[in-house]
């Protein structure tokens, strides 16, 4: 099964064979344990639940511990489900070696929260003129619609509001390096979220 849970470490650049520098994001991924296998007969769909990052026993609830104890697994902080038909055994450990260098993956993360952001930052509006007698119009959104007709602001009009902290998927990233010794994957390009943010690595949907 191709899927892992990991944490973003940071970005750097690596050199390929021709000496070109490639921007990569380093992710510490796995070892993940198969905590549960969901089947069509039992659950109505097939999926695999993975657990990541060992933690202290007292950090988990009794229910969570009992769920993990079924397969004699250590206390795990994060559990995530992956939709797949592939056969895996409960209790099995998955490491970065489920992926190979050169393969393409999707990386899901939670983008950095930017709070209540204006329209220039949030949607890339140009704002108003900086000079020619402007006051307080530098980052204003401009007109938000016509007058009496239609007499209302259309739904979905882009306005200021909460930005970031969304689940974002970076698609079709190439795996440029794998280090099984340190459980590290280096993926070409950037990945959503802050350093130490939780990311999910899956096989690319659009290869």
């Amino acid at each position: 099964m191709k899927g892992l849970i990991g944490k973003k470490v940071g970005m750097t650049q690596l050199f390929d064979d021709s000496g070109k520098a490639i921007p990569v994001t380093v992710i510490k991924a796995g070892p993940c344990y198969v905590t549960q296998v969901r089947t069509v007969e039992k659950d109505g769909y097939s999926a695999v639940q993975l657990g990541f990052e060992e933690t202290k026993t007292q950090r988990l609830t009794g229910g969570e511990l009992g769920h993990l104890k079924k397969n004699d697994l250590p206390p795990l902080k994060y559990l995530k489900e992956f939709r797949t038909d592939e056969e895996v055994e409960e209790g099995q450990a998955l490491t970065v070696e489920v992926f190979a260098e050169g393969e393409r993956v999707d990386v899901v993360g939670k983008s950095k929260g930017r709070g209540f952001a204006g329209v220039v930052k949030r949607y890339g509006f140009s704002g108003g003129p900086k000079t020619h007698g402007q006051s307080d119009r530098h980052r204003a959104p401009g007109s938000i619609g016509a007058g009496s007709t239609p007499g209302r602001v259309f739904k979905g009009k882009r306005m200021p509001g909460r930005m970031g902290n969304d689940t974002v998927t970076a698609q079709n990233l190439e795996i440029s390096r794998i280090d099984p010794e340190n459980n590290i994957i280096a993926v070409r390009g950037s990945v959503p979220g802050p350093k130490n943010g939780l990311v999910v690595i899956k096989e690319a949907r659009k290869q």
Binding site: V9, D179, N196
Partner: peptide
């Protein structure tokens, strides 16, 4: 965490 990046970089 920085050590993990260093491990990957070219010597």
């Amino acid at each position: 965490m920085d050590d993990l990046i260093k491990a990957l970089e070219t010597p």
